[in-house]
Computed example of a mutant assay.
Amino acid sequence: MNTLGHPRLLVCGSAGDAVTELVVPALLLRAPHAEWSQLVHIYVPQGPTVAFSGRDLRSPGIAAATGVAHRAGFATVVRSPGGRMVAYDSGAVVIDHLDRTTGIRHAGSATFAANAESHVRVLRDLGGVDARVGEVDGEYCPGEYSINVGGAVKVVGSAQRVTATGSLFSTVVQVAVSDRVRAVIEDVSDALGYDLRRSSIAGLADYAPALTPAEVASAFAADYRARLGVVDGAVPAGVVAHASVANGPSPFHVDDWTRSHPLPA
Rank of each mutant, 00 (worst) to 15 (best):
S146I: 01
S170Y: 00
G138S: 11
V149G: 02
D130I: 00
T171I: 15
S170K: 00
S146G: 06
V129S: 09
V122K: 08
C141E: 02
V173D: 05
G143C: 08
D125V: 00
G108F: 10
G103H: 12
V93Y: 11
V120M: 06
A107E: 11
H97A: 15
S118T: 10
I147K: 02
E144G: 00
R124G: 15
A131L: 04
A113G: 12
V122L: 12
V172K: 02
D99P: 01
G157M: 08
T101H: 10
D130H: 12
G157V: 08
D125A: 15
R161W: 07
G138T: 11
R105Q: 13
V122G: 07
G108W: 08
H106L: 10
R132W: 13
T171H: 00
E144D: 14
A116I: 07
F112L: 08
R161Y: 07
A131P: 10
R161H: 14
Y145D: 03
G134S: 09
A116W: 04
Q160H: 07
D130Y: 06
G166M: 02
G150K: 06
P142M: 12
T171L: 03
V122C: 11
A164W: 03
G143L: 02
D99S: 02
V156S: 09
V173Y: 05
G108E: 10
V93Q: 10
D130W: 07
D125L: 12
V173Q: 04
I104S: 07
H106S: 15
T171K: 00
H106W: 06
S146M: 02
A152K: 13
F169I: 04
A114C: 09
R121I: 00
S109T: 14
S146V: 01
A116N: 12
V122T: 14
F112K: 09
H97P: 01
D130F: 04
T111L: 13
G103Y: 04
I147M: 07
V120F: 02
Y140S: 04
V155Y: 03
S118E: 14
F112I: 09
R100N: 02
G134D: 02
V153A: 11
F169Y: 14
V156Q: 06
G91C: 11
A131R: 01
S158T: 12
R124Y: 05
N148A: 12
T171Y: 00
V172A: 06
G143I: 01
A114V: 09
I95N: 05
L168P: 03
G108N: 11
I104E: 11
I104T: 10
V133I: 15
T101K: 08
S146Q: 02
V153P: 03
Y145S: 02
G91T: 10
G103R: 12
H119I: 00
T171W: 00
R121K: 12
T165Q: 11
T163N: 00
D130S: 09
G103N: 13
G127R: 05
V133L: 01
T111E: 14
T171M: 04
V173I: 15
G157D: 07
L98K: 05
D125N: 13
S167T: 04
N148G: 07
A159F: 09
G108I: 09
G134C: 04
R105E: 15
V136T: 04
D99I: 02
R124P: 13
V153S: 04
A164E: 10
T101P: 06
A131F: 03
A159N: 07
V129E: 08
R121A: 15
L168Q: 01
V172R: 01
V120Y: 01
